[in-house]
């Protein structure tokens, strides 16, 4: 029997959630017995090569590329899981959400302490190659349907492990009090 296939990505996140996946320590050996990985920074596969069973999404959507990747995951994964506060509610990047986008760009590229003198031509990044920033940072479930949520910043390794095992084996998911946290 073939193993379930997992894909992962980090959108507007800090890779902390991926670090937390690695934090399952020696259980990582069990993990590779349980599942195969497809598109993921873990194995550096850049594009989907097959339909996956589980997609783990770290980070919310702050730009057009995030949206494309997220939609691609929805298309190629049977189950999609929002992993971590950023995927669930935008997280720290969403601190900009009540500031007009013009002001954000201004602060970042024209007036910020590190760019004020370094950008004499007042250039705002505008290359066809670059993604376009969204008006605000969106939680993933405000863009596509998300099946499960694993909160935390990052989610505790035990939470990710318990959830993955439950999803793969179909066993009931037990969540001890200490593993579900919002920070």
């Amino acid at each position: 029997m073939s193993k379930p296939i997992v894909a992962t990505t980090s959108l507007a996140g800090c890779f902390g959630c991926h670090m937390s996946i690695l934090d399952i320590d020696e259980r990582i050996l069990q993990l590779i017995e349980l599942v195969d990985f497809n598109k993921s920074p873990v194995d550096d596969i850049k594009e989907f090569t097959t339909m996956c069973d589980i997609g783990l999404i770290e980070g919310g959507c702050c730009n057009s590329e995030n949206v494309h990747v997220l939609k691609d995951f929805r298309k190629n994964c049977k189950i999609l899981v929002s992993v971590g506060e950023c995927a669930i509610m935008g997280g720290l990047p969403a601190l900009r959400n009540n500031i007009p986008i013009e002001e954000c760009l201004h602060e970042a590229y024209l007036n910020g302490p590190s760019t004020k003198d370094a950008n004499p031509d007042k250039i705002l990044p505008n290359n066809e190659e670059l993604p376009i920033i969204l008006d605000k940072v969106y939680p993933c479930h405000e863009i596509v349907k998300i099946d499960y949520y694993l909160p935390g910043c990052p989610p505790r390794a035990d939470l990710i492990w318990n959830a993955l095992v439950a999803l793969v084996t179909g066993d009931e998911l037990k969540l001890p009090y200490e593993v579900v946290k919002f920070d």
């Binding site: 669930i88 959400n97 939680p139 009090y177 579900v180």
Partner: peptide
């Protein structure tokens, strides 16, 4: 939120200033 196992609020975030 922990007690009632809120994994995500069912309502959209508004992010009012």
């Amino acid at each position: 939120g922990y007690k009632y196992q809120m994994m995500v609020p069912r309502f959209p975030y508004e992010f009012e200033e």
